[in-house]
Write a protein that binds this DNA or RNA. Structure first.
Lengths: 190, 190
DNA sequence: CAGTATGGTGTACGATCGTACACTACGCAA
DNA sequence: TTGCGTAGTGTACGATCGTACACCATACTG
């Protein structure tokens, strides 16, 4: 007999994606099509495997493994590496991309001046507020009141902004160069 | 009297960070130091303000505003959107990118054959398992046992795979074309 | 000043929850 | 073949849950 737990877990994960909450045993039972005690036993297995944990009240909450996604590698042999291997310690994409939540904002991209850096129109950037980023990093800068995304460079005339698109010119600050933050990540939906 | 709701909400958020679950009304009451009915009224306010929502069972779950982080510092017009506004209904980047967790896997990208689609070496793709994707979509295909990421096209010789890089040739299947899934999202860390 | 939201408290109640115990069916190894 | 671990069902029960209704104090407003 095949192990049906992955199927049960999938149902649970879909429910969680919808409601951001692990339902009660009775709801799990109807969700996966077993009796309430079947759900209890199933959850016991999930707790043991690190997918689910219990709050002090006895209610269920997701644990680390619950967010891990299977990772399909390109190695001829490999199907089995879980997402935790490629994402390191992070358990969700959020955790992977956002290291300092309190100082991180998201910025939508307009235009294609950074297209050679893989930043396309409509993408979202994870920006960490930091007014003194390192040279060579992609930054969000304030030029004449407008936000712009460019490489931060330094030359004989001081710091300037360089696009990743030969159709656009470098930007040399007239008065001062205000850096809003540093681009630390990017994501996009197709 | 000052509004104590932000303080109450902070307690709730701390609890949530610890247990990944909104507690019951009774627990909220002791958590913030009011009566159970005080907690009910407080949660009503939070629901109205979009911080909390209710699952079908009546249990509480976090909503969009619950995850919105305060925007530190001044910002010119047009840049004040917190993450929740950009992502629409989605609460986290995970929720935004992954619609069906149980059928979604992550794939690491090797090579630059899709570079003009903004998919670079080292990126991660969100792939939804689906053996019959629509034409024109970016797919993960299995060609001679190897995984490859390409546009799915159809021509006079049937379905084939087209890279997003003029340096690479189109791929016409010799025997059959196995589609592993469809690329629905992408993310990258800088 | 009277009227009315607003943020609380207290009590009560049926529904649902998590837990426990007993039992069945099946696969597998000694 | 016996024994045992695993996956599942059924029933039962006290505790807790979410909800409802009544009531109180403060603050603002016409």
């Amino acid at each position: 007999m095949v192990n049906k737990d992955p199927f049960y877990l999938g149902r649970l994960q879909d429910y969680y994606a919808l409601h951001r909450l692990i339902p009660s045993y009775a709801e799990i039972a109807t969700l996966v099509g077993v009796s309430k005690q079947g759900a209890v036993k199933f959850i016991d297995r999930m707790i043991f495997a690190g997918y689910i944990s219990k709050a002090p009240s006895g209610r269920l909450s997701p644990a680390n493994m619950f967010f891990a996604r299977p990772h399909v590698g390109f190695a001829p042999a490999g199907f089995a590496s879980p997402a935790t291997e490629i994402l390191g310690d992070a358990i969700t994409i959020d955790d992977y991309l956002v290291e300092h939540p309190s100082s991180t904002v998201l910025v939508g991209v307009q235009g294609d001046s950074m297209i050679n850096a893989g930043i396309h129109d409509g993408d979202f950037l994870i920006v960490e507020r930091n007014t003194n980023p390192n040279l060579g990093k992609i930054v969000v800068a304030i030029v004449d009141g407008d936000f712009t995304i460019k490489y931060l460079r330094s030359g004989s005339r001081g710091m300037y902004l360089e696009p990743a698109n030969p159709d656009y010119p470098d930007i040399y600050p007239e008065e001062s160069l205000d850096i809003y933050g540093e681009v630390v990540g990017q994501f996009r939906k197709f």
